Computed example of a mutant assay.
Amino acid sequence: MEVVIVPDAATGGRLVAGAVAALLREHSSIVLGLATGSSPAPVYDDLAARHQRGELSLAGSRAFLLDEYVGLPPGHPESYRAVIEREVVARLDLPGAAVRGPDGGATDLEAACRDYDATVRAAGVHLQLLGVGTDGHIGFNEPGSSLGSSTRLKTLTAQTRRDNARFFGGDPEAVPRHVLTQGIATILAARHLVLLAWGEAKADAVAALVEGPLTAMVPASALQLHPRATVVVDEAAAAGLRLADYYRETWEGKPAWQRW
């Protein structure tokens, strides 16, 4: 696992968007794994700016969403499909039809999960963006989730619903109780995992996932198993890292030829 400590979220966004741009220079089309929430927002901002300058095109690429709420009506502004439409599709040239997510309105949710999981794995995600919850969850794999899990139905914890209440008028009860989420094993199948975290509120989760034990109680610690995982954090989110100075030293001394 590589840990990159940046001065602020905007710097981290530029760094990760640069990795996407580098992929596009290597491949005519790529497969991205898209996350929602505040963590990937700086990446989407920088990708949009690069596109506006004519430096980047996702016209031939595809993308998959990590998760989706169950039971929200079609077109609900806080469905993750709607969020990605606003933050990515509307600002770049990634075709809306090339973006797929779990079907939270399916009649047979189990079948929808199986089909989606198979599609994601068959596509082969080049770069998967991730955030981390204050309790260490990734996607909606809450503490206690199987590290070998695939796409499935999950029940949200009270903490996650409180964290997401800001998107639903501040009311945790307005946050759906159930979601469909890519499982941890599905996430780990991507070629490159990039987890982003900003702010003091994420410091404990970052320390646990990077330097703590591998445990289902901190689902994000599963990144320790991946051969190419990058954790990008600002100074506040890095506050709990015991080896922070080492991470800074290794990043500053990284050979120019070595990919990240």
Rank of each mutant, 00 (worst) to 15 (best):
M1Q: 11
M1L: 13
I5K: 07
G12R: 02
V16W: 00
A19D: 12
V20F: 03
V20C: 05
L24S: 11
R25Q: 14
E26N: 14
H27T: 08
S29R: 15
S29Q: 12
L34S: 04
S38I: 02
S38C: 02
D45R: 15
D45W: 07
D45G: 10
D46S: 10
A48C: 05
R53K: 13
G54R: 12
G54Q: 12
G54C: 12
L56K: 09
S57G: 10
A59H: 11
R62M: 14
L66S: 07
Y69I: 08
G75S: 06
G75A: 04
E78H: 09
Y80N: 13
A82P: 03
I84T: 11
R86D: 12
V88A: 10
P95T: 10
A106N: 08
D108H: 08
L109D: 10
L109M: 09
A112D: 04
A112H: 05
R114D: 14
D115Q: 15
L129S: 01
V132L: 04
T134M: 07
T134R: 13
I138N: 01
I138Y: 01
G139I: 03
G139E: 02
F140G: 01
N141I: 03
G144M: 06
S146R: 12
L147G: 10
G148Y: 14
S150I: 15
A158P: 05
Q159L: 15
T160N: 00
T160E: 00
R161S: 01
N164C: 05
A165Q: 00
R166T: 04
F167Y: 14
G169F: 02
G170V: 03
P172V: 06
A174R: 11
P176H: 01
T181V: 05
T181Q: 02
I184C: 09
I184W: 09
L193Q: 09
L195I: 06
L196H: 04
A197G: 04
W198M: 02
G199L: 01
V206F: 05
E211A: 08
P213S: 11
T215Q: 08
V218G: 05
A220L: 02
A220N: 03
A220W: 00
A222Q: 10
L223I: 14
Q224V: 06
E235A: 13
A238T: 02
G240Y: 01
L241P: 00
L241V: 01
R242W: 08
A244P: 00
A244L: 03
R248M: 04
T250Y: 05
P255T: 13
R259H: 15
